[in-house]
Design a protein around this nucleic acid. Structure first.
Lengths: 167, 167
DNA sequence: CGTAATCGTTGCTGATCTCAACCATACACT
DNA sequence: AGTGTATGGTTGAGATCAGCAACGATTACG
């Protein structure tokens, strides 16, 4: 029917409307989502997810955490955490034991195998971070991180008071 | 039981592990998610969502778009777009009509009411953007946007070639 | 003591995305 | 022309996941 001129691209490659790209919030949403998607697929081979990784990180940082404090620290629903801990426990990466001082509580510990797994996840996570930030040089990466941290202090309740009035 | 010393905070306010906060990808994910949550709740009063907003933006930018081109431009699933357009059409904000040159296609137009609604959504979106970026001064906001744009060009397929080698 | 609150657990619900069919239409080929 | 293939829009089913309420066990309060 209509003669498509051969030198033009066969279809206009899809592009975001400029008005959206001009919005920082839009870029933040899309980049955050893309980073999550990428991470989820890369973690797949490990049999674990970034959620498990975050739990292991929290456990290694302060030992003897209770399930509630882990959930609060990471911003997870407590019901959600139960299943994640079940999976970690099945693989022998964490242990649960009742707090004898308050037998409602479960004290969660990371095991030696858990630390090994954590180190593997750290390496993977570092590769993902490098890939994400590959367009930026080290100084730019630091500036970006600092700017995001400022936003996080304001908007992520759990990040408050990280740089104590170091404005 | 144990005497809690009175000057200490009653409970340690939950805080992300430092190792996570040190990750730019983590901040990106959380901030993007928080921005989306905030937007979704603020849009609620309008009866529309950021998805509808993006569609209206796309429609005003290039007119006479077909549903497929809208879906591709915004990265939406085509099946998902149908429902969103149904809702916009019910409210009289867009019109669908068959392309007489290719009767498989639906040409979508924004209506005058759609433009009015779009302007309201723009104002709302601007308020959200200002709130999100409130910790940063104008120069910092621009730097952040530029850095995110560089990442987007690399990682969001639809953002490629926005600053043509303007490094 | 008895009532209320907390902790972990379970199950349900609602939202959302993905994917696979499906119909109508257009295009390609002989 | 006619047949087969591809495309655009539509619909519906299935998977996934966060959020919420309810529950038993235990502890704290008064």
């Amino acid at each position: 029917m209509s003669i498509t001129n051969p030198e033009s691209p066969p279809v206009a490659l899809p592009r975001f409307p400029e008005e959206l790209v001009a919005s920082t919030a839009f870029l933040l949403k899309r980049l955050g989502f893309a980073a999550k998607e990428k991470a989820m697929s890369e973690y797949e081979n490990t049999g674990l997810t970034p959620y498990h990784h975050a739990i292991l990180v929290a456990l290694e940082e302060d030992t003897h955490e209770t399930q509630g404090s882990i959930a609060d620290a990471l911003g997870y629903d407590r019901g959600q955490l139960v299943g994640l801990l079940d999976e970690l426990e099945e693989r022998g990466l964490v242990e649960r034991r009742r707090d004898q001082a308050d037998r409602r509580r479960q004290l969660v510990n990371i095991t030696p195998d858990g630390r090994k797994a954590l180190n593997r996840l750290r390496a993977l996570s570092q590769r993902l971070e490098d890939d994400l930030l590959s367009p930026l040089d080290p100084a730019e990466r630091q500036r970006l991180h600092e700017l995001l941290l400022r936003l996080a202090e304001q908007h992520l309740p759990h990040c408050a008071r990280l740089t104590p009035t170091a404005r």
